[in-house]
Design a protein around this nucleic acid. Sequence first.
DNA 1: CTGGATCCTCAACGATACTG
DNA 2: CAGTATCGTTGAGGATCCAG
Lengths: 231, 231
Amino acid sequence: MTNQHYGQFCGLARAAEIVGQRWTLLILRDLSVGARRYSDLVAGLPGIPTNTLASRLKELEDAGVVERSTPAGSERAMVYRLTPRGRELAPALDALSRWGAAGMREPREGEIVTPSSITAALRVAAGDGFVPDSWDTIYDVRIGDIDAHVVMRGGRITADPGPAERADVRISAGPGIRDLLAGTLSADEALSSGAVEVDGDPELFARFAATMRVPYSASLALAGEAAPPEG
Amino acid sequence: MTNQHYGQFCGLARAAEIVGQRWTLLILRDLSVGARRYSDLVAGLPGIPTNTLASRLKELEDAGVVERSTPAGSERAMVYRLTPRGRELAPALDALSRWGAAGMREPREGEIVTPSSITAALRVAAGDGFVPDSWDTIYDVRIGDIDAHVVMRGGRITADPGPAERADVRISAGPGIRDLLAGTLSADEALSSGAVEVDGDPELFARFAATMRVPYSASLALAGEAAPPEG
DNA sequence: CTGGATCCTCAACGATACTG
DNA sequence: CAGTATCGTTGAGGATCCAG
């Protein structure tokens, strides 16, 4: 109810009052991928207490960032979606995602990926969302056992959850795909090492690898969290 | 000690674990303006409990975002500053600031501004930081009783706290300057209404008003927090 | 079965006091 | 000045329960 205020007339403080609460950024990430029902959110955010989710949704609604609607016709199908004001958060969410990903090489013990996290990561990797007009390819991207798909068409690139029907290229990988997105692993190396498996035209995969980019932090070797005792 | 983890291999989740804690974004804002001592931070963040500040600084240090150093020569002068990795947060902080400011028209009851918040706001308003090479002006900007200064020189624009020595233009205003930065109040209107007082060449002030920009949300009228009962 | 509300426990946060 | 110690309060975590 009483959202914590910082008492400062400052854009960052106002933003922090809304998105600086536990779980809020991840809720917004999931909603940025598409409209979600309450139970979808619960499923996509393992560990979130149901009362915390309910509180956050109410706060976000009060802040004008999220709206609930029940699509006419379906009785029990209340969905949550971002308002226009909520969609304006995209640049900030993407910048935070990039920064976090820049310091993220391998999953920690027990860390998972979700359909929304994969889709959001692909959208961030797509950068400004523009590609040459002539490109016209559907990529199915499977990370672990989670499917998403990337579409390059009409000069634009989009990412959405779920498998693609009629994909031109099917990409299957594990966490090792992180190095590919960072640009430290070439498309050829990814294929020959087995880090990524591709079903389709290797040239189109090379194009994917060259287009999608989420670099590592330049200062990671110096300042990062303790280097993993990797063998 | 045990920072809350979300258990997801996701850039946004990793970022949220670090910057999604109460007060952290504001601490980073102050440090993004310059190195600060512990007591500077306490003074610039009214209401922060001292133990919370100590915890946050330690967590940020562990995360590689902040470093403490004691400048040789001075006994008791430990200062905190952003690491290179911490400075990489600037785009994300700026995007969040812009989003928050887009929904912020007037100060709420009791809200204040601080030297760091003013300086950070001016830096955000400066956009990409580029101006025509020929511009060479020092603006002193006083909001309420807080001074900062903006320098346009060598094609770059910078904002720093404190008054300027040898300012070319002195700008003095209250919260009404928000409309000027948003672009809904013209330089002329700001002067004639008394919302902003200027000591110096009006043309240089007009240039300032045209360059510094933090727009209001386009969807504010529809979705925002309750519209102020403004006359 | 979805969309929560309730209850309890405990860790984190907040305010004040105090110390090297 | 730069924090640590103490203690009360709040909010998160986790399980269960209830209404439509």
